[in-house]
Amino acid sequence: MVMSIAHRATGIANYAGSALLVLWLAAAAWGQEPLNVVNAIYGSWFGQLVLFLYSWSLIHHMLGGLKHFVWDFAEMMEPGQREMLSWATLVGSVVLTLLVWTIFVWVR
């Protein structure tokens, strides 16, 4: 139940977040100066926080989608199993997000 709401919420967050991606691409296409502005905003602590949450939202929504693929084959639907699967998507998304940021941003 809660994870169904989370899937919808992250879906809507990704919907809005797509504007961030397109804004970055458009600034790059436009010229160096607009790109500098976008890079400064996205590179600020608040920008990085938003991008961190956006990346978690994307990963969580992807794992939630994979969970639905499993359920489409009528697997893992028993009580206990489905809760376990939902917890796996939550833990998995947090671990994956931290892994990506650790490898590609913080340690790099």
């Binding site: 991606l21 397109v22 691409l25 458009a26 296409a29 436009w30």
Partner: peptide, 9 residues
């Protein structure tokens, strides 16, 4: 906007 920007690049 996304496709136009990418194609511009």
């Amino acid at each position: 906007v996304g496709v136009a920007s990418i194609f511009k690049l």
